[in-house]
Design a protein around this nucleic acid. Structure first.
Lengths: 210, 210
DNA sequence: AATAAATTTGACCAAAAGGTCAACAGCAAG
DNA sequence: CTTGCTGTTGACCTTTTGGTCAAATTTATT
């Protein structure tokens, strides 16, 4: 028999290798999302991934590659909810669904949210091109849909772009400022159900025509 | 004549000294707000303040003191708008005024906003006590006022704490994510007038009773 | 078992960073 | 002018940090 396993599926070796890369990326997400690019150290990332620094550098060429990998591979997931807005759906339902999806992302992927927050606060050196390109086009398109709904009286007259900003802000806030919210609420959890209810009420009331 | 100038007002010397401290803090605000505590370097701060690092350390005992000074001396200013909410004023007017004040702070003090954002994302190691203490009490008090207005039907039934979070999020977003907004809008400015109009509309519609 | 390939790490290096110190410059009072 | 205090910095020290490398260890393959 001639090297069956190799070409048909990943060998245990390559599977393990991919697993190690994932472990590194997971640890790096912890560190970068908290301390930002400059504030993160390879030793900290390696330690979190349970390996030595040279070993980490066997899987990635350097600090920058890890950071870039984390940011770029999350971009599509970040756009998905915006792309999912259906121009033919019920306007208020589409928008409140978008809000809910974004809030769920803040709840389920808070570290990714903070990674982006750090990147943008720092001036978006890595994803700046993406923000001014692909993201801008998507927002333009969404704003056009919103304007259409607005003009046909299906929703209140709103500034589409600023509405999108408000949705981003209100939802991501629960991830980026998680610590503050915990401390201000004085409870262990964040109360995502309360937040969801509140945000749905907020944006529904805003959008209802008339 | 015996040492008239000294006790009556600051001498030129001490005035100059205070000026240098301000120059350092201003430069430090640039650097800390962008790169976070760990990512900031004393050389960068000193260079931005137009002096050498040892000279900087003549005015401050170290990196931490500069950072702590920046954070703590901004706390009062940060609370002022929340304190200014008048329980006896017109509810919707009071809240929209609060929104406007917060947005003006984001416009006029974006670096301070980003400094706080960095501090909180990083886990609030410096101002954590303040957030769970003084700020929590103020939010509790404001939430009580909102609940009162809500129960007496002067505004729609809202979750006071989450409403406050939404206002913080929506306004500070224009400071913290300034770069992203610029890139997505594709213009040089942020359109604070549009933002103000949008936010006033958003929160007014939400709050109107009935 | 022997060999080869992949993986792991201790030791090391150069640069960066926080901080110290002795010496030097500026300046006001006697 | 000189004395003394304030302000300033070049040189230096120590630790941290990103990254390299050769040697060692583990894991397949024959």
């Amino acid at each position: 028999m001639i090297r069956a396993g190799k070409s048909i599926r990943a060998t245990p070796r390559t599977a393990a290798k991919a697993g190690k890369r994932e472990a590194i990326l997971d640890s790096a997400l912890d560190v970068f999302s908290r301390y930002g690019y400059r504030g993160a150290t390879l030793d900290q990332i390696a330690s979190g991934a349970g390996m030595s620094k040279p070993n980490l550098l066997y899987y990635f060429s350097g600090k920058e590659e890890i950071h870039r990998t984390l940011l770029t591979r999350q971009l599509d997931a970040w756009l998905a909810p915006l792309k999912a807005i259906d121009p033919n759906g019920d306007p208020v339902a589409e928008i409140t669904l978008y809000v809910r999806r974004k809030l769920e992302m803040a709840r389920d992927y808070p570290r990714e949210s903070r990674l982006f927050a750090n990147e943008i606060i720092q001036g978006a050196p890595v994803i700046g091109e993406f923000l001014g390109g692909e993201l801008k086009q998507l927002v333009d398109e969404a704003a056009r849909i919103l304007a259409g709904w607005s003009e046909s009286g299906k929703i209140a007259p709103v500034n589409g772009r600023h509405l999108i900003f408000s949705i981003w802000a209100a939802t991501q806030h629960y991830a980026d400022f998680e610590v503050q919210i915990r401390l201000v609420l004085g409870s262990d959890g964040i109360g995502f159900d309360d937040a969801a209810e509140h945000l749905e009420f907020l944006f529904r009331r805003m959008l209802e025509p008339g």
